[in-house]
Simulated scan of single mutants.
Amino acid sequence: MLRKKSMSVIVGSVVLLTVLGVYLAVSSLDDSETGNGSNKSAAVSTTGVETRSSREENPFGEKVKTPLSEDLIQQYIHGMSHQKVEAEEKWSFFEITPERIDYLLSQLEMNKYNYKDRYKQILTNWQNGYFSEAVSDHNFIWRLKNGNVGIATDLLTSKEEKEYIRGQKREKR
C-alpha cells in the first residue's frame, strides 16, 4: 500500500513538472514572437506600449508589427531621402508622401527610440516642405546604418528628382 502511494506521488510530481515545463516553454516562445519578452539588453524598450497583433498593411505597402522597430523607422526615412539626394549608390526607395510622413510621426509617439528627436525633426521638416537639409538627413541615417557606399553629396534638382522617381521600377527597402 505504501509502495503504491509512493509511486503515485512520484508519477504525479513528474506529470506536474512536465506540464509546468511545457507551459513555461510555450509562454517564452509567445513572448519572443510578440516582442513582449523582458530582454534587458534591447536598445529600444516597448514597456507599456500596446502592440497590435494583427499585421495591417502600412502606407509603405508592407505588413509589419507596430510599433515599428527603430531599424524599420531608419529604413523608411533612408529610402524616402533617396528621392532628394545625389549619391553614388542608392539601394532602397520609398517615395515621400504626406501619408507616409504622418504615419512615421505617429509611430514615433508609440515607442521609445534612441534618436526620436532627430527622426521627428527630419519628418517635420519634410512635412513642411523643407528639404534643404536632406543631404544631412540622409547621411545621419546612413551613418547609423554603418553605410560604406552611397553617402549623399548634394541635393537633386527638381528635374533630377522627377527623373529619379520615374526611373524607379518599384519601391523597396
Rank of each mutant, 00 (worst) to 15 (best):
W142R: 04
L156N: 09
T66M: 05
S38E: 10
L20Y: 05
R143F: 06
L155I: 12
F60Q: 05
S106K: 12
I101S: 04
G35W: 02
L123I: 03
F94Y: 14
D31L: 12
N39R: 10
I165A: 08
S8F: 12
A134W: 00
N36D: 12
K40F: 09
N139G: 03
E163F: 01
Q168R: 15
S27K: 13
N114D: 14
T34K: 07
D31C: 06
R55P: 02
R173Y: 14
R100K: 15
L20E: 02
K84S: 07
I77C: 08
E86W: 00
E133C: 04
R52I: 07
N148Y: 09
A42M: 11
R55A: 13
A43V: 14
A134S: 14
G61T: 07
V19I: 15
K112V: 08
V85R: 01
K116I: 05
Q121I: 00
V15M: 06
L156A: 10
L68P: 08
R3P: 03
E161F: 00
S6F: 11
I141E: 05
K4E: 13
R143L: 06
R118M: 04
L2T: 15
G21E: 02
K84P: 00
Q127C: 01
K65H: 06
T51P: 03
L104H: 04
E89Y: 03
W91N: 14
Y103P: 09
Q127V: 00
N146F: 08
S27H: 13
K65Q: 08
V22T: 10
Q127K: 15
M80T: 06
S54N: 13
N114V: 15
T124L: 03
S158E: 15
V22R: 00
P98L: 04
N128G: 06
K40D: 12
K90E: 10
K116F: 01
E88L: 04
V44H: 04
Y115A: 07
N58E: 03
R100D: 07
A134R: 01
A152Q: 04
L72E: 07
L17M: 13
N36H: 10
K145Y: 05
H78W: 00
D102V: 06
N128R: 04
F140E: 04
T18A: 13
E160Y: 05
G35S: 11
W126G: 08
R3M: 10
G21Y: 02
V44E: 11
E57S: 11
Q83P: 02
K116N: 11
I151H: 02
R170F: 13
I101V: 15
G35Y: 05
I73W: 01
D102M: 03
G61Y: 04
G12I: 07
T157N: 09
N36G: 13
R52Y: 03
L144I: 11
T66I: 12
G61A: 08
S41L: 08
K5Y: 11
T34M: 02
E50D: 14
I73N: 06
T34V: 10
K63M: 10
V85W: 00
Y76I: 03
L29E: 13
G79D: 00
N146M: 10
D31F: 04
E56S: 10
Y119S: 03
T66C: 02
E95Q: 14
I77W: 00
L108F: 07
Y119M: 00
E95N: 01
K169V: 12
S54T: 14
V44K: 01
R173E: 13
I10N: 06
D71T: 15
